[in-house]
């Protein structure tokens, strides 16, 4: 058997004070193969982001083990992360934002690499612009360029397109798939959106809230590449979509912390 690229075994992680602890993740086990695109889908509070931060090496588990390439994860070591709110450095130009994410390279080399990846996402003209001068879609492409420039073998994406409008979001999904086809990496992608999950994933990991745990894993059978035809027209798409939506709906309605609790 091929060893997993990312492996979580019996992982639990809590937050909060000693008096009022909350369990973000409980007994989560997951193996992700090299080159696989796994989408973590679930309602708020299901620990999706916590799982990504554990895999990124930003936090450590309270119990259980996390390994990337068989080792405990180290931030930036072959891993790059894309965040929902972009997290661009407002006082750095687009080019320097990308170059900042390459601490292992020399200054000149980092800038050269940054310019290459800016051109890859179509931002060459804006290399010397500050983030405040860019539109939302451009900021997201910049954040993506920053992550890709590190040439990661593992890309962690935390609802990266959630703050974009519907059209930008679909175009970014296609752009991401094109970029990943050119330079494959393992992807762990967090989203609230059933459609986004179905369009991007090789496998969907459905998570349930409070405490966060894995409810179901579903292989997505649609052929790749998916950008040259409308995956949503496939008959299986509607079936899978309805199944996932019903599971999510039940989770939200049965979650005492949800605004929609008991409204089914």
């Amino acid at each position: 058997m091929i060893p997993a690229h990312v492996l979580l075994s019996g992982v639990s992680r809590g937050f909060g004070t000693a008096k009022a602890p909350t369990l973000a993740l409980s007994q989560v086990s997951l193996a992700v193969a090299r080159g696989e695109v796994v989408v973590l889908l679930g309602p708020s509070g299901c620990g999706k982001t916590t799982l990504l931060r554990l895999v990124a090496g930003l936090i450590r588990p309270d119990a259980g083990g996390v390994t990337v390439d068989g080792q405990p994860p180290q931030p930036g070591d072959g891993t790059a992360m894309v965040f929902q709110s972009f997290r661009l450095i407002p006082w750095k130009t687009a080019r320097d934002n990308v170059a900042f994410a390459l601490p292992r390279l020399g200054r000149a080399e980092a800038r050269e690499r940054a310019e290459h990846y800016l051109s890859l996402v179509g931002l060459s003209r804006f290399a010397k612009s500050w983030p405040a001068q860019l539109s939302g879609g451009m900021r997201q492409r910049l954040a993506l360029a920053r992550a890709l420039a590190a040439e990661p073998t593992l890309l962690l994406m935390d609802e990266p397109f959630a703050s974009l409008d519907a059209q930008s979001r679909e175009l970014m999904q296609i752009e991401l798939m094109r970029l990943m086809a050119a330079r494959p990496a393992t992807v762990l992608f967090v989203t609230h959106s059933v459609d986004e999950a179905l369009i991007l994933a090789d496998r969907i990991v459905l998570m349930s809230p409070r405490p966060g745990r894995i409810a179901e894993e579903i292989a997505v059978p649609f052929p790749r590449p998916r950008w040259n035809h409308d995956t949503r027209a496939l008959p299986d798409y509607a079936l899978l979509r309805r199944h996932l939506w019903e599971r999510l709906r039940d989770m939200v309605l049965n979650d005492p912390a949800s605004d929609f609790h008991g409204r089914g």
Binding site: A56, L58, Q74, P75, G76, D77, T79, A80, M81, F83, S85, R87, I89, W91, K92, F100, A101, L102, P103, R104, A150, L156
Partner: peptide, 27 residues
């Protein structure tokens, strides 16, 4: 804190974070 977490995720050292993120933010 969000920018610092982003910087950590790139593997930036505490010194690099101080120089590029914390001090310019405190300007």
């Amino acid at each position: 804190a969000d920018l610092i977490e982003m910087a950590r995720s790139t593997g930036a050292s505490p010194v690099r974070i101080a120089i590029h993120i914390v001090l310019p933010g405190a300007l």
